[in-house]
Design a protein around this nucleic acid. Sequence first.
DNA 1: CATGTTACCTCGATTGTCTAGGTAATATGC
DNA 2: GCATATTACCTAGACAATCGAGGTAACATG
Lengths: 111, 111
Amino acid sequence: MTPGSKDRLRGTLDVLILKTLTWGPRHGYAIARWLEDTTGDSLTIEEGSLYPALYRMEQRAWIESEWGTSELGRQAKFYKLTPAGRKQLRLETAEWRAFVDVVSRVLQPES
Amino acid sequence: MTPGSKDRLRGTLDVLILKTLTWGPRHGYAIARWLEDTTGDSLTIEEGSLYPALYRMEQRAWIESEWGTSELGRQAKFYKLTPAGRKQLRLETAEWRAFVDVVSRVLQPES
DNA sequence: CATGTTACCTCGATTGTCTAGGTAATATGC
DNA sequence: GCATATTACCTAGACAATCGAGGTAACATG
């Protein structure tokens, strides 16, 4: 729709995934479902973004993976936060808030 | 620093520029200065992002340009909002707020 | 036995930002 | 008079993240 609205998630996807994992280990598919469910489909993560993001974040040691069995009895790769991931989550959450504050101030009606 | 922190502006630059122009026509250099000044250097627009963005937005007819003379007596290209630009500003501002609300809710400490 | 769901993955296109260059006119310091 | 800084514009190429569209496979359902 709006050019650029499609990837408004850019720069935010990582922190959302990290946050999702604070409720305990989850597999990729469940992460996407959880975000859609809790936001009423406002946030949808495409699989073409999700799996590369998980790979990226594991490379950076923010998350760790382990194969296991899903709630429905299927093979699934469960991700969990590492200490570095928790630290990253705190950092990015703070940065996000600061950025949002600044932009919101600029976009305010008056000035 | 944080990977991706550099282009956290992505998807936000346009709306910031549009907002800047609601105070009246400004040339590119002045837009960048104004944003830095009013945010205490929190938001800095690189020229390599700014000028392509202005070009893009003029193509989309959100802004119009006209050569004139700057406050310091130099040649400068002044941009002003078109009606379509004002509409776009309203739209993107609303989208921004909605997006921020959703993400902020997810990132809240409790749930 | 066909279709849907769960669950994973990959490739290429797209897009916007950044870095790093460059031009030119005017102002300032020495 | 000369070097440097500032104002003001622009472009080219690199890069990184997201997306769309494809694919695999196991199991469930009707």
